[in-house]
């Protein structure tokens, strides 16, 4: 392959020429590199706070060391287990419900031949992706608040007694799961619709000739066809199993102490202690534990996947 540059120049000073070219290219990437270093790589050093007694006036590096005290407090107080359990369970629940819903939507929408109906319904289902979680929080309030919420309006009109959902922790996993699926259904189904339209049309034609029913066609051609996409989506999400979607939890649940046992995830816990400026040591420990474990899970899963079938590996 031709490496660029005037032939004469390359012949005269190949090393210098290439060095100049690399320097120019690096300078083009410089703004991104600076942003990554300053706002992603430098803050990684802040993770050492997990082993320190943080004081704002002394900063990250001036604060005194205190060994594993922070971790001891985090797990002895029970908070560590609670928020880890909640984070993992919510992620599993949300992962399966939202992916299953998206796959169903994609399969059904691609079977619809009426283009106008298909376009309009797809647009409508995609709409929730575009609104902020603040607005979703408004919806939740609109539906569930005790005095004026739509749910209680409906219950009262049917002569049933109103419920105070905000004092029923058991209901919230389902509410959160519902709104998560609701917000991401359109986005995820776009991915699966792309996967389905990418499937070779030949097997479909053969199935048509052999007289396969629609459900047989879906089960034996479409499902295996989108399997690689399903696996990729699962792998991407597994790496995030310890990361709670902070914006969602915070806007749907808010700072409602009654619901913490059922709804507190690592990210909301960290955020709350940040705002209240309390338990910063335990928070730093939770942060480090989250970052390190997430990294370890991704590396292990990726290595295993690479061994089984390197096509599915993330990197």
């Amino acid at each position: 392959m031709y490496k660029g540059g005037l032939a004469v120049e390359r012949y005269l000073k190949p090393v210098n020429y290439r060095r100049r070219k690399y320097a120019a290219l690096l300078s083009m990437a410089a703004p991104a590199i600076v942003l990554a270093v300053a706002f992603a790589y430098f803050p990684m050093s802040g993770l050492v706070l997990a082993f320190k007694n943080y004081r704002f006036d002394r900063g990250v590096f001036g604060s005194a060391w205190n060994g594993f005290e922070n971790f001891r407090y985090l797990f002895q107080s029970g908070t560590g287990w609670l928020i880890t359990r909640n984070t993992v369970l919510y992620n599993l629940l949300n992962l399966f419900t939202s992916q299953a819903l998206a796959i169903l939507i994609a399969i059904f929408i691609t079977e619809i031949n009426n283009m106008i109906f298909r376009k309009v319904s797809q647009s409508v289902i995609f709409l929730p992706y575009f609104i902020s979680w603040v607005i979703v929080g408004t919806f939740v309030y609109n539906i569930f608040n005790y005095e004026t919420g739509a749910l209680n309006t409906m219950l009262k009109s049917m002569n049933l007694s109103p419920v105070n959902v905000y004092s029923k922790p058991g209901a919230w996993p389902w509410i959160i799961c519902f709104f998560n699926a609701w917000k991401w259904a359109g986005y995820n189904s776009v991915i699966y619709i792309a996967a389905i339209t990418g499937i070779d049309s030949e097997p479909y034609e053969a199935a048509e000739i052999d007289g396969a029913t629609i459900s047989q066609r879906i089960w034996y051609i479409t499902m295996p066809g989108i399997l690689p996409t399903v696996i990729t989506m699962l792998l991407l999400q597994v790496g995030r199993i310890l990361r709670g979607d902070f914006e969602m939890f915070y806007q749907i649940v808010g700072n409602n102490g009654q619901l913490f046992n059922a709804t507190d995830v690592i990210d909301t816990y960290v955020f709350r202690s940040l705002l209240q400026n309390s338990n910063l040591g335990m928070t730093a420990a939770a942060s480090l534990y989250q970052s390190v474990l997430c990294f370890a899970i991704i590396m292990v899963v990726n290595a295993v996947v690479k061994r089984i079938d390197s096509d599915y590996a993330l990197f």
């Binding site: 690399y22 803050p43 730093a284 990294f295 991704i298």
Partner: peptide, 28 residues
């Protein structure tokens, strides 16, 4: 034809695998 493209790609990609988290980002 850029020799360091893989190194640079990984340098960027790594930030999605590992990060300082909410607390230290805030402090910085």
């Amino acid at each position: 034809d850029f020799k360091y493209r893989n190194v640079l790609s990984f340098f960027f990609y790594f930030t999605t695998l590992f990060n300082g988290g909410m607390l230290s980002t805030y402090i910085f």
